[in-house]
Design a protein around this nucleic acid. Sequence first.
DNA 1: AATACGATTTAGGGAAGCCTAAACCGAGGA
DNA 2: TCCTCGGTTTAGGCTTCCCTAAATCGTATT
Lengths: 231, 231
Amino acid sequence: MPSADHTESVQDYLKTIYDIQREQGRVATTVLAERLGNSPASVTGMVKKLAALNLVEHERYQGVILTPAGEKIALEVIRHHRLIERYLAEALGVPWDRVHAEAEKWEHVLSEDLEDRIDALLGYPTTDPHGAPIPRRDGTIAPPYTSRLADLATGQSATVAEVSDHDPAMLRYFGELGLRPGVDVRVVSVAPFGGPMTVRLDDAEHTLGREAAGYVSVCDVKPAATDAADQ
Amino acid sequence: MPSADHTESVQDYLKTIYDIQREQGRVATTVLAERLGNSPASVTGMVKKLAALNLVEHERYQGVILTPAGEKIALEVIRHHRLIERYLAEALGVPWDRVHAEAEKWEHVLSEDLEDRIDALLGYPTTDPHGAPIPRRDGTIAPPYTSRLADLATGQSATVAEVSDHDPAMLRYFGELGLRPGVDVRVVSVAPFGGPMTVRLDDAEHTLGREAAGYVSVCDVKPAATDAADQ
DNA sequence: AATACGATTTAGGGAAGCCTAAACCGAGGA
DNA sequence: TCCTCGGTTTAGGCTTCCCTAAATCGTATT
């Protein structure tokens, strides 16, 4: 039962609404407009169409939320997007700061058949190159990570789970540092009042701004070791 | 010096005009309309736009021809298309009767960077899975084949060079027969008045209609052997 | 409680591309 | 030569999605 296929534009709106909803709960017209590169007025117009299609609920002056139908489509599009990103990185060697832009264009024209082939060829991956979870075919998705590198205290260590892919320059920077999903980090020191933090990665220490660290999600957080030999 | 990128629609028009021009010289509005699935009236409108962009020459009631600029773009699009077809078949195992439809959608969103990666990964192929030549990056292309299987006489043999990809059903049929580019054929017999011909392929004989045989281009045509032991 | 300001929506338009219906050309047969 | 008929173009319209400018709403502040 494939959902009726909507236009590219509708898909982009739903995908973006989904993202913002994850981050902020409420999806304001202005935010959506900025993220899509459209004027707020245009967004209002499109949102009305989405509401007419029962893909979002729209309360005037209050922003939108996805309906279950809208969320389903959003997840399908995101699945395409992340699977393509993974494929580009793994099979075609595209650097991870460029896969996003490329996937953005491809996601709308990927057939289900090809998606399945790519999925199988990659061995049914569960995350994209930035660590973001790939929605499953049944429309479910792993819950978002709850901890960020910026929140860790001195002495704590963790595993990098996901880095934000919104800014290619930031991705290149993280790449140079070796800050990739799966890598272990230990917080060496944290400057107070939102100052920079120093972390140890692959036996090298790096200092990075707290803001940048906010773009890194971590998992498996371990408390500051009182002893050097923990499990 | 990349050409200004035109819309998907413009690209499709130019590509199709190029194809028809190869086959028929003159490109009539009606033919173009039918091939694109648009009404003749719409095609006239678009043709006027193409002429205004100096991509085609249009003489009223006389059809169109590509200008050098138009041909350049057409060849770029065709290069994308055929490279993708090859990639889909070779790297992703898509059956050859489906690569066309898939490539049709992907060709418009392929970046130059990705094209280069695919090209290199495939080892700079010169033909697509149907045997059609892939235009080179410099805008040149191998000349079309001149002989068709349907034109061969009894006893002649040749190598299959290219099969038409216009009809997926026909492609599946050819595939079942083993009639693929690179395979040798020998004409066993030919019925008169455009009747079917029998050919030998891979040590098996098959009978196929003359019309179908018209969709198969051949090269390396050898005359009817007077002796069984030729080189 | 009044107001100001930012967020949001309405109003009015425009560019692409497509359509149908109707007018128009030109080449071959009467 | 005239006329017919198919191929082609014009006329007028529609849809989708975008825009700017001008209302309008909600709310934080006074």
